[in-house]
Computed example of a mutant assay.
Amino acid sequence: MLSNSTTPFTEILFDSRVGTTRWPYGSGVWSKKEWVLPEIDNDDIISAFEGNSNLFWAERFGKKFLGMNDLWVKHCGISHTGSFKDLGMTVLVSQVNRLRKMNRPLVGVGCASTGDTSAALSAYCAAANIPSIPIANGAFVLSIDTDFDGCMKLIRQITAELPIYLANSLNSLRLEGQKTAAIEILQQFDWEVPDWVIIPGGNLGNIYAFYKGFKMCEELGLVDKIPRLVCAQAQNANPLFQYYRSGWKEFKPVKANTTFASAIQIGDPVSIDRAVFALKNSNGIVEEATEEELMDAMALADSTGMFICPHTGVALSALMKLRRNGIISSTDRTVVVSTAHGLKFTKAKIDYHSGGIKGMDCRFANPPVSVKADFGLVMDELKNFLSRR
Results as ranks from 00 to 15, higher is better:
residue 283 N to E: 13
residue 283 N to P: 04
residue 283 N to V: 01
residue 284 G to S: 09
residue 284 G to W: 07
residue 286 V to T: 13
residue 287 E to C: 11
residue 288 E to A: 14
residue 288 E to D: 12
residue 288 E to N: 14
residue 289 A to R: 00
residue 290 T to D: 08
residue 290 T to S: 15
residue 291 E to C: 06
residue 291 E to H: 10
residue 291 E to W: 07
residue 292 E to Q: 15
residue 292 E to D: 12
residue 292 E to G: 11
residue 293 E to T: 08
residue 294 L to P: 03
residue 295 M to I: 10
residue 297 A to W: 00
residue 297 A to T: 06
residue 298 M to I: 01
residue 298 M to F: 00
residue 298 M to V: 09
residue 299 A to Y: 01
residue 299 A to S: 15
residue 300 L to A: 06
residue 300 L to N: 06
residue 301 A to E: 00
residue 301 A to R: 00
residue 302 D to R: 08
residue 302 D to C: 13
residue 303 S to D: 02
residue 303 S to V: 05
residue 304 T to Q: 12
residue 304 T to I: 02
residue 305 G to Y: 05
residue 305 G to R: 08
residue 305 G to L: 05
residue 306 M to V: 11
residue 307 F to W: 09
residue 308 I to L: 12
residue 308 I to C: 12
residue 308 I to A: 09
residue 308 I to T: 12
residue 309 C to D: 15
residue 309 C to P: 02
residue 309 C to G: 08
residue 310 P to H: 06
residue 310 P to V: 05
residue 310 P to T: 06
residue 311 H to Q: 15
residue 312 T to Y: 01
residue 313 G to Q: 09
residue 313 G to E: 11
residue 314 V to S: 07
residue 314 V to T: 14
residue 314 V to N: 04
residue 315 A to S: 15
residue 315 A to L: 11
residue 315 A to K: 07
residue 315 A to V: 12
residue 315 A to I: 07
residue 316 L to T: 02
residue 318 A to M: 11
residue 318 A to E: 04
residue 319 L to A: 11
residue 320 M to K: 14
residue 320 M to R: 13
residue 320 M to A: 15
residue 320 M to N: 13
residue 321 K to H: 14
residue 321 K to I: 05
residue 322 L to R: 06
residue 323 R to M: 05
residue 324 R to G: 13
residue 324 R to S: 13
